[in-house]
Write a protein that binds this DNA or RNA. Structure first.
Lengths: 238, 238
DNA sequence: CGTGAAACGTGATCGACATCACCCGTTGGT
DNA sequence: ACCAACGGGTGATGTCGATCACGTTTCACG
């Protein structure tokens, strides 16, 4: 018997699938039924590793609920967070299609519900249903464009504060607008923020203090209130 | 009547299409025939602009011959070369699929032969032929993985010399191994190399001199001979 | 063949940021 | 209740690379 907590997110996911909110689930009933037949649903606690960079692709992971951190590591041990995937995103798609090893590692940073589809099942699905194939092409296009934007940020930003401001502004898009600024839940440590923009923990700490001093942001627990959204936009040239 | 030069590259492209060398052309005859019917072939001199960042997507460009520079520019005017596309690559795919504006600008850096397919024709092709759709998904996966690797390089490299060494090593993969090192044709100025790794022209000049001093490379005209491939690999931690 | 523009080479300077070192406060585990 | 481990804050220091400035070479083209 599942715990009340698990039931809750399961319910939520089913609902979203039925209503077709998730881009990847918004397909003809027979395709969805087929997907339903071959999928494995898993619920992972925070900190679970879905797969590791370099592994042979076992299949795709459809994230129903929760968030997953995608990282890559240099031979020196430096880590870069490539992306944080949210609900509705498909993970491990390109590797699974091409049969290439996963390019990144995936680790949940929240309790997450994940549907897994084995590689051969997925490839069969693609050949059998043009619709699934079209949706996959769209998902890949979106990921590609997101990667393109990431390349822009990393390559064109002049200073570290510009990168950090850009990151916070990106977060704002999914934040909640309140009386005292846009509220964002930051579930990342300074270390992890540093790994997202290719800098060090100390620099992130210092820059965030600077932003506080300049009244651009306010920190209350794990909430970050962005009070100077316009000023921050002025700092960003990308 | 086409010039001998144009004839030559046209011939070469036809041949490659027939032999199925180009990944995107390696499809069932009826799909190829359909593509043949809707495509527009163009031959562009060096420096032609295929499209500009931000434009509405008109369709896809299949590069048969030549090379195309894909760039993005910051509001400050700084330019980043995202990728140099070569024969067989499809350009403008993700934007065309999603209907989003082109994310980059495309400019030929060699005389190039390009097949253009209009957006609606292409989308019809995708819906009609699962095979075309599968090939598109594969192309997108490859592009996505390439972008991923680019993110790795930009985000994890510690120093600029590491980035430059990595770039040269990447070039080596398509170079010709000779008695005195791997030969590469560099058709880029120092300025453009700088734009590929997010640094300045002066730094590229200085670093290349340093590499010459250390006997890692030799420059003869537009040819670059990599003599110390192993030493350079040692400089790169990504 | 000359001439102007583009590409390349190099020195001087300076600031941003990585690195090291240490401290403090919180948290969670036994 | 304690203390190790973790996350966060901050100073001192050194260095890499951006920037400016100018000279030199190469090359296209009339």
């Amino acid at each position: 018997m599942p715990s009340p907590y698990n039931l809750k997110i399961e319910e939520h996911c089913t609902e979203c699938t039925l209503r077709g909110i998730r881009p990847f689930c918004n397909m003809a009933p027979e395709v969805l039924a087929e997907m339903e037949r071959v999928k494995f649903t898993g619920i992972y606690p925070k900190g679970s590793v879905l797969f590791v960079e370099g592994e042979q692709p076992r299949g795709i992971f459809i994230l129903c609920n929760g968030r997953v951190k995608l990282t890559t590591t240099s031979s020196e041990g430096r880590t870069l967070i490539v992306r944080i995937a949210g609900p509705g995103e498909v993970i491990g798609l390109s590797g699974t299609i091409l049969g290439n090893p996963y390019e990144v590692s995936a680790e949940t940073i929240e309790p997450s519900q994940v549907n897994f589809i084995r590689r051969d099942d997925f490839l069969r699905l693609l050949s059998a249903h043009t619709e699934a194939c079209l949706h996959t092409a769209q998902q890949l296009s979106e990921k590609y464009e997101a990667a393109q934007r990431e390349i822009r940020s990393l390559g064109l930003a002049q200073t570290t504060s510009e990168k950090l401001a850009k990151l916070i502004l990106d977060w704002c898009d999914h934040g909640e607008v309140t009386a005292n600024g846009t509220r964002i839940q930051v579930l990342l440590t300074h270390e992890e923020i540093a790994q997202m923009i290719g800098t060090t923990r100390e620099t992130v700490t210092r820059l965030l203090s600077e932003f506080k001093r300049k009244k651009l942001i306010q920190v209350k627990g794990s909430n970050l209130f962005v009070t100077g959204r316009e000023e921050m936009r002025g700092m960003v040239s990308i």
